[in-house]
Amino acid sequence: MIKQDISKYKHVWVFIEHENGEVARVSFELLTKARELAKDLGCEVHAFTVGDKVKQFADEVFKYGAKKFFIIEDPFLKDYITEPYRDAIVHMIDKHKPEVVLIGATTLGRDLAGTIATVLQTGLTADTTGLDIDPKTKNLLMTRPTFGGNLMATIFCPDNRPQMSTSRPGVYKAIEEPVKGEVIKEKFEFDKSKYTKQIIEKIIEEGEKVNLGFYDIIVSGGFGMGSKDNMKLVQELADVLGGTWAASRKAVQSGWAPQTRQVGQTGQTVHPKIYIACGISGAIQHQAGMKSSEVIIAINKDPDAPIFEIATYGIVGDVVEVLPKMTQMFKEKLGKA
């Protein structure tokens, strides 16, 4: 293991993930969390990113409390490609030596973080759901689920810097706390012949992009819904409750819902106030994505379905019969009739 002088590293850095000119919400969530960490460490929150035109994100980034925004702008970085992004970012980290680097555990973030950490020869804790500062050592304590959420591990990185973590979207709330920040432009000379990978086509999935983490109420449908048509029942209840709808992996695989609405180990992790699982048996892979919801309501035909083991309230019944009634009655009760 390569030993470093860790005292030279300072400040908490948050990677600003963006696509098509839009910042990923997880970046704001992490900026909010980073403010807490920076307070405990007695340092500042800085944001960083690379791309073609990224200076435009500065205002938003400062709104969430970043004092500095490090960027590299280059038309070569128009689309996300692992290797040039990595090299540009490594250049910035090498130069400014942040103590902590936080990246969203999105598809892009997980693609990027491991390769950066390997070049930097530092520790990376993937897919964390908890970040704290050890009051004694000032090390970052990173908590992450393993074994499909059955075991939690708190991991730290005592002798290497930066301490890197990818964090699951939807874990922290994004709260604004505007500051006057400063944009710092860096430069990186690409040896373009080194990069032999290119995007030749982008296929944008139909339908909207959904951040399930936004919603306080999620109504989710599983294989027990029986058909794509019946998924409408889930949507209708979600509409009445002012929430959004989601689906289990099986429902997504059956083509009843887009992957962007999948809850679970291979989908999104959500923590709404109310999660209504309709016709979802509750395999541990699904539980891993919704177990920390405040109230879980489960409706299932099978009284032995594992979902009832974690449900706050359980109803044994046919979703196709229960859901329309529930929608109707809740509509009346919530004064929406």
């Binding site: 591990a153 177990k291 359980g314």
Partner: peptide, 17 residues
């Protein structure tokens, strides 16, 4: 570089009603 400080099981969600 990374070490496990502790491993623990998440609080059990009690079977509800």
């Amino acid at each position: 570089p990374t070490k496990v400080r502790k491993a623990f099981t998440p609080p059990k969600r009690e079977r509800g009603e």
